[in-house]
């Protein structure tokens, strides 16, 4: 039984077809990488899954529910979390506050409870803080301790990427969508994150869908790889199968030019 099922997704912007009749399935506990050249529709796919765009045709099913057309905040509540291609933190909130925002969809305190600081609200706040710290601690000591109270804009680039993932983890998702998580990281950081992605699946029981350009990451992380080009799926399988698939190579590198006589 699939956790995520995309059927026949089609999405166009003006004349540009970003997704064309795309089918995709992800089983629970899998780590699936989505690869493809720029403009292949990978981020659009994420945006459609998370409800930022509504597909022109096709459906998205998650955990037995048809989530096509739902609003992003509803989808997050159902258990899908994501990070963005360019880091979108809340720059002037502290590290801890950023992570605590992730817990929003799992908590209830409303206007009156917050004003009155009812006991259950205070307990909930403590829980939120603890869970946020837990998510931050996943990345080691870097985002903990005194770092918690620093504004997010002050972090180094790699730490900001990590914080974004931590914030997504704080939403207690079942499915995590990572959009180029290692972009801009140096080899050491990349290796560490690759390891952590596996850890997320093993320790937290997450299912993960990753968009990546760095093939070392793809190789190190994936159970399965899906290759897109011009909005269509052109290959699917293990890393070795896809990496050597002629169509995939052609999509990235182009066709061999005609040899002169």
């Amino acid at each position: 039984m699939a956790l995520l099922e995309c059927r026949g997704l089609t999405k166009s912007f003006g004349g540009l077809a970003a997704l064309q009749d795309l089918d995709l399935e992800v089983s629970p506990g899998e780590i699936v990488s989505v690869i493809g050249p720029n403009g292949a529709g990978k981020t659009t796919l994420f945006n459609v899954i998370t409800g930022i765009y509504e597909p022109d045709q096709g459906e998205v099913w998650f955990n037995g529910h048809n989530i096509t057309g739902l609003k992003p905040n509803q989808i997050t509540k159902l258990g899908i979390a994501r990070t963005f291609q360019t880091v979108h933190l809340f720059p002037n909130m502290t590290v801890l506050e950023n992570a605590m925002v992730g817990q929003h969809c799992r908590t209830r305190a409303g206007l009156f409870a917050s004003i009155l600081r009812l006991p259950w609200q205070r307990a909930e706040e403590e829980r939120v803080r603890a869970k946020a710290r837990q998510a931050l601690a996943f990345f080691g000591p870097r985002l903990t301790g005194y770092r918690e109270d620093q504004p997010a804009s002050m972090l180094s680039y790699a730490n900001r990427r990590r914080l974004e993932i931590a914030r997504a983890l704080a939403t207690e998702p079942k499915l995590l969508l990572l959009d180029e998580p290692t972009a801009g990281m140096n080899p050491v950081e990349t290796q560490e994150l690759t390891r952590l992605i596996g850890k997320m699946r093993d320790e937290l029981g997450l299912t993960i869908l990753v968009i990546e350009h760095d093939m070392r990451v793809v190789k190190g992380v994936s159970d399965r790889v899906v290759a897109l080009d011009h909005g269509r799926k052109i290959a699917e399988g293990s890393y070795e199968e896809v990496a050597h698939d002629e169509r995939v190579i052609e999509a990235y590198l182009g066709r061999r030019a005609v040899e002169s006589a």
């Binding site: 039984m1 699939a2 099922e5 089918d23 399935e25 099913w61 955990n63 037995g64 529910h65 048809n66 052109i234 290959a235 699917e236 399988g237 199968e241 698939d245």
Partner: peptide, 19 residues
């Protein structure tokens, strides 16, 4: 290219939910 295994979703949501 590996064949995509089709599988059924667990249950279709109710009519009210769809609406």
């Amino acid at each position: 290219m590996a064949k995509l295994k089709r599988s059924r979703a667990v249950s279709a949501p109710s009519r009210a939910q769809v609406l």
